[in-house]
Amino acid sequence: MLEVKDLHVSVDGKKILKGLNLTINAGEVHAIMGPNGAGKSTLSNVIAGRDGYEITSGSITYKNDDLLEMSPEERAWAGVFLAFQYPVEIPGVNNTYLLKAGVNAKRKHQGLEELDAFDFMQTVKEKAKLVELDPSFLSRSVNEGFSGGEKKRNEIFQMAVLEPSLALLDETDSGLDIDALRIVAGGVNKLRSPDKAIVMITHYQRLLDYIEPDFVHVLADGVIQKTGDKSLAVELEKHGYDWVKENK
């Protein structure tokens, strides 16, 4: 589904990613862990298409297309979704309108009929339950006045409505208390399916107790240093990142 090859990325002239390789297949759940400044968020932002990142070499192929040639909205239409680390507040833009426009833009692109208002609201209400999001949030402005935990929950709710093929969760667990983490993780687990892939970026092994990954990657100094299964996360927690570098 996603093939990142020898990716080099700089921000303001500073090299962040230095030849990163990553292959993700449908149905898989990957966790990317690593110290601060390793390039984890850079990777997810580059995949989602954010400006301000200079791709000096390498490629990203998504479902046989050159992802780097696509605009952020084209990527969304093709099924890429980023759950933001810091979801932005957008006063005056209604949460439900945004989702409806997003869903319909995607359907239009796929040559499908637009959803009618009633069907859409049914779906939305169903998905809100999935992450135990209070229905009152649906009619509010996007993230405006939401607590940190509510914003993260709203991201997963959006993911549930937009039904992406490839979901990137950028530190979705940070700032969540244990109950909220359980709810969010429950939501994510329900979205697992053989035709979807999930990439979780996290600092903590804690999240992986709730969402069990197929692969754990350690990203440090701009490259994947080590790849393993869930037990790698446990080792990491025990020994720290330096251990990875020493035991490459």
């Binding site: 298409g49 605009s71 969304a76 980023l82 933001f84 932005v88 989702l99």
Partner: peptide, 20 residues
């Protein structure tokens, strides 16, 4: 960027934010 990442075209995103 947030709006575009949700599938709103660049043009509509700008207009929407202006209206909002």
């Amino acid at each position: 960027f947030y709006l575009r990442s949700r599938g709103i075209s660049a043009e509509a995103a700008q207009e929407l934010l202006t209206f909002a």
